Simulated assay, not measured.
Amino acid sequence: MSSTAPPRPSTPSVTLRNSLLEFLLALMLLFGVTTIVRWVIGPSPISSAVTAPGLQLLIVGAAVGALLSGLVLSPAGQRSGGHVNPAITLSMWRFRVFPGASVVPYIAAQLAGSVLGVLVARRVWGPVTDSPPVNDAALRPGPGWSSLALFPAEAATLAVMVLTVGWFLSVPRLVPFVPALIGILVGLAIVLLGTVTGGCANPARQFGPALVSGQWNFLWVYLTAPMVGGFLAAALHSAFAGRRLVTHKLCGTHAATAHPTRG
């Protein structure tokens, strides 16, 4: 469907339903992430057998990437668009395939789901989840990083993801591969950047763990840098894409109705 089609704003009931779905998806993502970190990095038969940090990150990256792809492809993900990331929600709005009136409800739902997902994981797995090295799956950059250095790194990480996903969403034959692409990109970010910047690229990914664990250092960077990077990348794509505009929802399964960039 052309991105110049007449807009069809979401009704309040649709916005509420889809926001609740995003809440559920974020809850499952953070429960899954915390569970993966608990068993791969925390004390367990896996961490005892695989002691090299690089191999542990590889397992975490592969597992989280597969989990995220599955959430995007799930019935809930296909209904809501499968954002599960405030920065992606903002980017989809900037791509003009997502209504502005739904941006704040989606982001609020994703952040709330993030907190509850970590709390549920802590309840299920017990005190080990809150103790080092798990620390409720909270992220932190490697030694020597400052907030001013971390901000552009995190912004650039999400910008690369948004530009890549935007390209796939603008080429019809590539659209079906978007859910797998998202999992691959997130997995690579974890593997390549996990010990460097933390490899967050998702404000909801860090919000719940930081809030529950009390690790507030760099939180403002992890919350805002991906939003800035995603927005700028979407604007860059829209400015130079020519006829290759984004015309599909993030889940990549069907065309999206265009929406005005405001309201």
Rank of each mutant, 00 (worst) to 15 (best):
G82S: 04
A66L: 14
L67A: 06
A138P: 06
R123N: 07
V171I: 13
A87H: 01
I107D: 11
A66G: 08
L55C: 06
A76D: 04
F151E: 14
L150F: 04
S170I: 11
L116F: 06
N135Q: 13
F168G: 10
A109E: 11
G54K: 15
Q78V: 10
G126Y: 07
D130V: 15
A109D: 10
M92P: 00
P152Q: 01
T129K: 08
F98E: 01
G82K: 04
Q78H: 12
A180W: 15
V134C: 12
A87Y: 01
F98G: 01
W125E: 07
G100A: 14
L57S: 08
T164M: 03
V72F: 09
A76W: 07
V60C: 10
I88D: 00
V175G: 05
N135I: 15
A153I: 00
S69P: 06
G54Y: 07
G65V: 09
L158D: 02
S146D: 15
Y106L: 03
R140Y: 13
S147E: 15
L57T: 12
I107K: 11
P99M: 08
L68M: 06
R123P: 04
G82A: 03
S147A: 15
P172R: 14
A159N: 02
A87T: 02
V165F: 01
L139D: 08
P141V: 00
S102W: 11
V118A: 02
W125S: 07
V118W: 04
A49K: 09
R94F: 03
V97P: 09
W125Q: 06
L116S: 04
F95L: 03
A153L: 01
I59E: 06
G54C: 05
P127S: 01
L158F: 02
G100Q: 06
S74M: 05
G77P: 05
I88V: 04
G183V: 04
A138W: 13
W145Q: 03
L174W: 08
G61A: 07
V134T: 13
L150T: 00
V128D: 14
P176S: 08
V72C: 08
M92A: 00
G81Q: 14
P141R: 00
V171Y: 07
L73G: 14
L111T: 12
L90M: 08
L68E: 05
A137Q: 11
P127T: 08
P99G: 13
A101D: 13
P86R: 02
I88R: 02
A156E: 00
V124T: 12
D130Y: 13
L73N: 14
L163M: 09
S114H: 08
R79W: 10
M161E: 04
G117Y: 03
V165Y: 01
P152T: 00
S102V: 05
S170V: 09
V134P: 09
A137E: 09
V165H: 02
S147R: 14
V175Q: 10
